[in-house]
């Protein structure tokens, strides 16, 4: 009798577990924007963990920050030098704080009740790092290179936080893509055009179109990488040896096509978005060496994954793109907070 009771209980438990799993999965069902927010959270989390690497607790980290001031306007270089000196004097404490903040930003975005707070904080943090830590990504110094992180990976974090902000414009019209939900389609397209258009421009700057510029940049990435990636870098570098101008033109054209893609009809826009993701992947692997994570010296995953994530926020939505149909749990305004 007891055995039978156990058997019944066991079956009931199994059934209960299955129903629970199903309920849980349903309750946690994701909409597109929430999924993209989680992508951003994961990158922040990775960023935070990378900041804990031993390299970041050496003076080289402060020197790396200081090096970004080269060629920048005085107002930028002063800020960077001040920050670099501060970091070098309080290396352990400040780097631990930096890493913890980034870790919390990732967890905060992933945790639904704090998503707004974390996204807002991430914008402030990203703008601060862009100015004080990355020298505005070399945009004003002529050192910006789209193949190696321009216009600064961290500013793309801020852009993504804005575009993935969990609210909808009250127009009532269906949003054509996720990025349009918070800021509107026109603003979102303009931001896309500015970002990718600037990348196209940077590809053609004198420093980047020099005959050996691209070759030297890619070849330089091989140092410290695992064998397969170093070999890939060397072969890629050999392909563009003395072809700097041609490679820059091809790259600039591709980036320009991507830039205007957001204004094109959905089928064409999708093709340009695929091109954007492919470019992001090539940039991340060949140009950025996975953010040099595999060398133990990468402070962040660099711009490749962020550009790909950004492209996904512009992917044309079907009927589910309407604000109501695509609303996530995270979009519900927390109690006590008013607009």
């Amino acid at each position: 009798m007891a055995e039978m009771s156990d058997t019944v209980a066991g079956r009931s438990r199994a059934a209960a577990r299955d129903r629970l799993d199903a309920a849980g999965a349903s309750a946690a069902g994701l909409d597109v924007r929430r999924a993209l927010q989680l992508g951003l959270a994961a990158i922040w989390l990775l960023d935070g963990v990378l900041q804990f690497q031993s390299f970041m607790f050496t003076k080289a980290f402060g020197q790396m920050i200081g090096a970004t001031s080269s060629g920048s306007p005085v107002i930028v270089s002063h800020a960077i030098n001040w920050n670099a000196a501060l970091v070098e004097h309080h290396l352990v404490l400040l780097n631990a704080i930096f890493a913890t903040v980034q870790l919390l930003l990732g967890l905060g975005i992933a945790y639904r009740p704090t998503v707004r707070l974390a996204l807002a904080a991430s914008i402030v943090w990203a703008l601060g790092v862009w100015w004080f830590g990355e020298g505005l990504g070399g945009v004003l110094s002529g050192a910006a290179d789209p193949v190696n992180g321009a216009p600064g990976a961290v500013i793309i974090y801020a852009l993504l936080a804005v575009l993935l902000w969990p609210s909808d414009r009250p127009s009532g019209a269906p949003a054509p893509f996720v990025a349009a939900r918070a800021v509107g389609a026109q603003v979102a397209r303009a931001l896309w055009l500015v970002l990718w258009g600037s990348l196209a421009y940077f590809a053609l700057t004198p420093a980047n179109r020099a005959p050996q510029a691209l070759h030297d940049m890619i070849a330089g990435m091989a140092s410290g990488e695992p064998g397969w990636l170093a070999a890939l870098d060397k072969h890629s570098a050999a392909l563009v040896a003395h072809q700097g101008l041609a490679a820059s033109i091809v790259l600039a054209v591709a980036l320009a096509i991507v830039a205007v893609g957001a204004y094109l009809p959905a089928p064409v826009a999708k093709a340009t978005l695929v091109l954007a993701i492919v470019l992001a992947a090539v940039i991340w692997v060949v140009g950025e060496g996975f953010g040099t994570i595999l060398t133990g010296g990468g402070t962040d995953p660099n711009s490749g994954p962020l550009l790909a994530l950004l492209a996904l926020t512009y992917w044309p939505l079907a009927a589910a793109g309407t604000p109501r149909a695509d609303r996530s749990v995270a979009d519900e305004r927390p109690e006590g907070i008013t607009a």
């Binding site: 629970l20 799993d21 309920a23 849980g24 999965a25 309750a27 946690a28 994701l30 929430r34 989680l38 959270a41 994961a42 989390l45 990732g106 967890l107 992933a110 945790y111 639904r112």
Partner: peptide, 13 residues
């Protein structure tokens, strides 16, 4: 997986 875990309701899994 960690991000997914944080996002999901605590009861889900």
């Amino acid at each position: 997986y960690s991000v997914r875990d944080v996002d999901r309701k605590a009861c889900a899994d």
